[in-house]
Design a protein around this nucleic acid. Structure first.
Length: 828
RNA sequence: GCCCUUGUGGCGGAAUCGGUAGACGCGUUGGACUUAAAAUCCAAUCGGGGCUAUACCUCGGUGCCAGUUCAAGUCUGGCCAAGGGCACCA
């Protein structure tokens, strides 16, 4: 065994060995229980970054730990390889997106292997390959058949820089999630998935997800945005041309209905022209034109003062016969509720601000009986009792919500209503590098799905990437024209491709049956492996990917393709990797290249370090000194073995009875096994696991330092300690562990070993430190035998000279004994 | 504004049930080895005070203020700060 550690040589050697021997291949037929460990698959951007390293190392250690604990582990990897960067590269450098992507995948595959990740490479999936996107298209058709994929004309989010529309989830503060440019509204005909059909399911089933953090669950719940209230329909009494017209509103405060003093419709409200009198027409038109010009950010700013103009028409409140005016104002949103709002300035802060500005009347209808407010200075939005509300006066507002809505239902002018903020998922993209939507438009038959036996609809190669203002796919001379599958006549293909989030919404299912060319996946295999037992990835997908995947699982369940409701049983959202307090990014210039770390220290050091300093869920601050420290530690472990190789055997036999000093080391090892096992099992606290590695290593070094002569017993105990250490470390420092293992004479890989077990009786110190407190303050510590009873502990405490002195002349009122731990004397 | 998460030494962070606060590491300081350096090893390292000094003793200390308890980093109530999410969503 070499005297010092040499990762640069030994790591590639083992890497090749694992590859040649398919050490980590997973077989479907096994009598072991299954465990599915999954990292969020990467976009092949070119190179791994430290966030990837952290993500994949965490999952890899989990997979290896479970394997050693007797599970048949599925631990796959793939590539989320459709998307804009490849197309941008094509536009800028004239390189084929497929080639660009392939090259990136090849490079990053090398990096993943170098990092020592125990993937079953035979299950690799690549979303941009025909063998994969064929099934993405097939799944689209299944959703289409179920009525869950549909096309509609709608106001959609348009990113001019990316040249495509975006889903609501991809608009962050009015800006594009990818390129940060301001998003505009456009009216376009686009494909949607009906995720709103699953709003209630997606919300309700969050309760099932015990293994998800509350942060992610509340983010999803907020996004779904459920509220309950009522719809009220108000008749317009003075519409131009005497038209008979109603305006429905959605409200969560039906209890305030007697306080309506005006009504607001969104500038884009569909009937707005019919609601506008000729005298007001000009002002209203102007206001609407202005609203149209505003971008999302301006429009949605809550700071902007409220504006609006009257329409000139009026409604009657059927509850009290009062007449109130109609206005248009852009604080009403056309896409939420009915696009119209009943305004009660006394009990809604927005209505209050608006009414104040335009001098609209106010009427108090809810009051706190203890502390009545006249709502002159601000709206009263708390609970209370109804006033000025006819037969409902005196009723608690929480009860009145129901009673008043019921009255509307009975009177035929309203109903109970549950409303969600979630919108349907817009999946069309006007880009080339994605899965083509398998639809054709026939001149005669209209929209026609591509028959399943004609899949995949292949991406054309004969395209011009230099075009501006339209998707390159539309430049293909061969792609667009086709025949109608129904009538055989002329038809044109849909040229939009699918959002890449569609591809990533089902990839975790494909791993269960990755090479199936006949089917999307075998139902039994998917039901066998899924749900994912442990999913690991970044918090940035809390809404996007995780919500879409949950939707897909439920929709495919309803299509009869699988038998479970939720795809990811446990979710670990790892924190960001920071350097100097901020997120690593190229623009900040604070990135660390994983290759450089591999080169200088080896993958094991990288793996050890990325797990060592913070618990996985927290942000991790990269420090060069920390890497150095981990490298030194590995050297120290290496030297422990190289300097003592003659004393370590793999087939040691521990005697039944050993010397006290040997018993102490054995106990230390058992305690380490216990705490390491528990720390991994309990929320994957790898940072403390690594502390235990160091503690155990320190203990073994202490032991070695004290031995002048070595008995056979000493060697056996030492062998036990050293081999336990290297096994415990093997999921983290994968290459070094196998190298040492072989240097010790093993013929098989350490990664085929069973996890260490501990004996509960040995996993505790032979003596304990009794803490003696007086009035809750620690006054003495006494080494006592482990087996002492509570009475004996009390006796020991009272006999301590220190305690005697402190209690001298005082009365002991009470004595608390915590078994094997502590005695607290309450004295006066 | 609403919701979630987090607040512990110079730093990253430990601390099953309420029971020794600061494990382990980084950094710093001192020492050993060396011609020297690197590497390695040993020791000290929350703050204030006491003692010539070591040992030791003592007081304070887990964002702030209260409370419960023999005992609070941990439980309860009220605040404050940072990070994140949602947001004219009626």
């Amino acid at each position: 065994m070499k005297e010092s550690y040499y990762p640069q040589e030994l790591e590639p050697r083992w890497q090749k060995y694992y590859e040649d021997n398919k050490t980590f291949k997973t077989y479907d037929d096994s009598d072991k229980p299954k465990y599915y460990a999954l990292s969020m698959f990467p976009y092949p951007s070119g190179k791994l970054h430290m966030g990837h390293v952290r993500n994949y190392t965490i999952t890899d250690v989990i997979a290896r730990f479970k394997r050693m604990n007797g599970f048949n582990v599925l631990h796959p990897i793939g590539w989320d390889s459709f998307g804009l960067p490849a197309e941008n590269a094509a536009m800028q450098h004239g390189v084929d997106p497929a080639k660009w992507t392939d090259e990136n995948i090849a490079y990053m595959t090398g990096q993943l292997k170098r990092l020592g990740l125990s993937y079953d490479w035979d299950r690799e999936v690549t979303t941009c390959k025909e063998e994969y996107y064929k099934w993405t298209q097939w799944l689209f058709l299944q959703l289409y058949k179920k009525g869950l994929a549909y096309k509609k004309e709608a106001a959609v989010n348009w990113c001019d820089k990316c040249g495509t529309v975006l889903a609501n989830e991809q608009v962050i503060d009015g800006k594009c999630w990818r390129c940060d440019s301001t998003v505009e509204k456009k009216y376009l005909s686009q494909w949607f998935f009906k995720i709103t059909d699953y709003a209630e399911d997606l919300l309700k089933d969050l309760d099932q997800l015990k293994g998800w953090g509350d942060n992610v669950k509340t983010m999803q719940a907020n996004w779904i945005g459920k509220s309950t209230g009522a719809i009220f329909r108000f008749k317009v009494v003075d519409a131009p041309n005497g038209e008979d017209i109603e305006v429905p509103v959605y409200t969560t405060r039906p209890d305030t209905v007697h306080g309506i003093t005006y009504l607001v419709v969104a500038p884009e409200y569909k009937d707005i022209e019919k609601l506008t009198t000729p005298e007001n027409k000009k002002a209203v038109e102007e206001y609407r034109a202005n609203a149209r010009k505003m971008n999302e950010i301006e429009r949605l700013s809550t700071e902007r003062p409220k504006t609006g103009v009257p329409l000139g028409t009026h409604c009657i409140n059927p509850f009290n016969g009062e007449k109130f005016p109609l206005w248009t104002a852009d604080y009403a949103l056309v896409e939420y509720g009915t696009g119209a709002v009943m305004a009660v300035p006394t009990h809604d802060t927005r209505d209050y601000a608006f009414a104040k500005k335009y001098n609209l009347p106010m009427k108090v209808v809810i009051q706190n009986p203890e502390n009545p407010s006249d709502c002159k200075d601000e709206a009263y939005t708390e609970e209370g009792v109804l006033v000025n509300s006819n037969e409902f006066n005196g009723m608690k507002n929480t009860e009145a919500k129901k009673a008043i809505t019921q009255k509307a239902v009975d009177g035929g002018f309203g109903e109970f209503k549950t409303q969600y903020r979630l919108r349907d998922w817009l999946i069309s993209r006007q880009r080339y590098w994605g899965a083509p939507i398998p639809i054709v438009y026939c001149d005669k038959c209209g929209i026609q799905p591509v028959p399943e036996d004609q899949l995949p609809v292949r991406l054309p190669k004969d395209v011009d990437f230099s075009v501006v203002g339209k998707s390159p796919i539309t430049t293909s001379p061969t792609f667009k024209d086709t025949v109608c599958p129904k009538c055989g006549g002329h038809a044109v293909r849909e040229t939009d491709t699918m959002d890449t989030f569609v591809c990533s919404s089902w990839y975790y299912l494909r791993y269960a049956d990755a090479r199936n060319s006949e089917k999307c996946f075998d139902r039994d295999l998917v039901n066998k492996w899924l749900p994912v037992d442990q999913y690991v990835g970044g918090i940035e997908h809390a809404i996007l990917h995780l919500l879409y995947s949950r939707f897909f699982t439920k929709a495919l369940r309803d299509c009869g393709l699988l038998d479970f409701d939720e795809p990811f049983k446990n979710l670990l959202t790892q924190g960001m990797v920071l350097k100097d307090g901020s997120k690593m990014s190229k623009s900040k210039g604070n990135t660390v290249d994983p290759d450089e770390i591999f080169e200088n220290y080896g993958a094991d050091t990288a793996r050890l370090f990325i797990l060592s300093d913070s618990p996985p869920a927290r942000d991790f601050d990269w420090s060069d000194a920390g890497v150095e420290g981990c490298y030194k530690f590995l050297n120290r472990v290496w030297r422990l073995f190289s300097a003592n190789q003659d004393k370590i055997t793999l087939d040691y036999k521990l005697p039944d009875k050993v010397q006290k000093y040997n018993d102490d080391l054995i106990r230390t090892v058992h305690m380490a096994i216990k705490s390491i096992t528990n720390d991994i099992s309990n929320d994957f606290q790898f940072n403390t696991v690594i502390s235990r590695y160091r503690e155990l290593t320190n203990s073994i070094y202490d032991y070695v330092g004290k031995r002048k002569e070595w008995t056979e017993e000493d060697k056996a105990v030492f062998s036990f300690a050293a081999t336990s250490l290297i096994k415990l470390m093997s999921p983290v420092t994968v290459f070094m562990a196998d190298e040492i293992w072989h240097e010790l004479g093993a013929k098989t890989s350490i990664h085929d070993e069973k996890w260490c077990e501990w004996d509960e009786n040995l996993a505790k110190a032979s003596s304990i430190t009794l803490v003696v407190q007086v009035n809750g303050k620690v006054k003495d510590r006494i080494e006592v035998d482990e087996g002492l009873s509570n009475d004996e502990l009390k006796e020991t405490a009272l006999n301590s000279p220190k305690i005697k002195e402190l209690t001298e002349g005082k009365t002991i009122i009470k004595t608390i004994v915590v078994p094997k731990k502590l005695v607290n004397l309450v004295v006066k």
